[in-house]
């Protein structure tokens, strides 16, 4: 092919090219460029697929195990795909523990926490970035300082407080301690700081109160921050383990993560059964992430790049 091009170029040197020759040369070059681009795209795609497969392998393997009869798992030869797929594990898992109830509890808890955090964090971040009051920065520093305390350090005192109120084994116990977060306040505040102050002042002169400004101007304009925050909070709340384990005692109040723990017992450990349970409960997390990933990524980067 390149010989032909070289010939063409030589030909061009020898004599002026005719119009047809010029056109065919252009066509030729175009074709080459297109082919090159195609090869690039295909190879990039291939590399991506391979990488994605490697990253997803544990997850896919877990899904596959969930469909395996327990006998098939412990064999010497490599079996990635179940030979006799079965739904038995799912059935058993649902029988062993009330997983549906647990999923409901988790949804309720995570949902309430997410909603609560969005409300409380946006309100406090609003005060910290738009309202001018004495000690504003000190308050913010104190809030930030709480992020340095690990949750484990406060878990006992929190437990004592909750139990003294008689809230043990209740939704309040699961939800109320997590209704606000320093991280969320920080995230929202950073967002609001990049918000033009003149919009707030303009609204003030227009006669718009703080609440109305927050609801009808600030929140709609910070949708991506709220989305990022919501996904992050929901997944965190969904994955909580220590606190629910501590404050819940009955099957009515337990969350899914505890439920998975309950599938594991010293006497009869069944890997396939546990994996089936895990597969069932990661579905909501993954679907939330898929729905919210655009927001999440935009939210995480919105501070970095002016868009």
């Amino acid at each position: 092919m390149s010989d032909m091009v070289a010939e063409n170029i030589q030909g061009m040197r020898r004599r002026a090219m005719t119009r047809e020759e010029m056109e065919s040369l252009q066509r030729e070059m175009n074709l080459r460029a297109k082919r090159k681009k195609k090869i690039r795209t295909v190879s990039l795609l291939g590399a991506n697929v391979v990488t994605a497969f490697i990253i997803l392998l544990p997850l896919l393997y877990a899904v596959s195990i969930a469909f395996m009869p327990s006998g098939e798992l412990f064999v010497m030869d490599l079996n990635i795909v179940p030979k006799h797929p079965t739904l038995e594990n799912f059935k058993l898992a649902l029988q062993r523990v009330p997983l549906v109830r647990f999923v409901f509890n988790s949804f309720l808890t995570a949902g309430a926490i997410t909603l609560g955090q969005i409300i409380s964090c946006s309100l406090s971040a609003f005060a910290l970035s738009f309202l001018d009051f004495k000690g504003r920065n000190v308050v913010f520093m104190i809030i930030m300082a709480t992020m340095m305390l690990p949750g484990e350090a406060t878990i006992i005192s929190n437990y004592l407080t909750i139990s003294s109120w008689g809230w043990l084994d209740s939704y309040q116990a699961l939800i109320v301690p997590y209704l606000t977060s320093a991280m969320g306040i920080f995230l929202f505040r950073q967002f609001y700081l990049s918000f033009p102050m003149s919009l707030y002042e303009s609204a003030k002169i227009d006669g718009c109160g703080n609440m109305r400004f927050l609801v009808s101007i600030l929140l709609p304009l910070t949708k991506s921050a709220i989305g990022a925050m919501a996904v992050y909070t929901f997944i965190n709340a969904w994955n909580m383990y220590m606190w629910p384990l501590l404050v819940t005692g009955s099957n009515n109040m337990r969350t899914v993560q505890i439920g998975i723990g309950m599938l594991d017992s010293v006497d009869s450990q069944s890997i396939t059964l546990m994996i089936a349970g895990v597969v069932m409960i990661i579905l909501p997390s993954i679907s939330i992430f898929i729905v919210g990933q655009k927001q999440l990524i935009r939210g995480m980067f919105s501070g970095a790049v002016k868009g």
């Binding site: 033009p196 003149s198 919009l199 002042e201 303009s202 003030k204 002169i205 227009d206 709609p220």
Partner: peptide, 20 residues
Amino acid sequence: VEPKDRDLSMVFQNYALYPN
């Protein structure tokens, strides 16, 4: 007196339009 009760209005340098 609060800005909204002064019966004045203001045009800002960056226009301050509500984007939404």
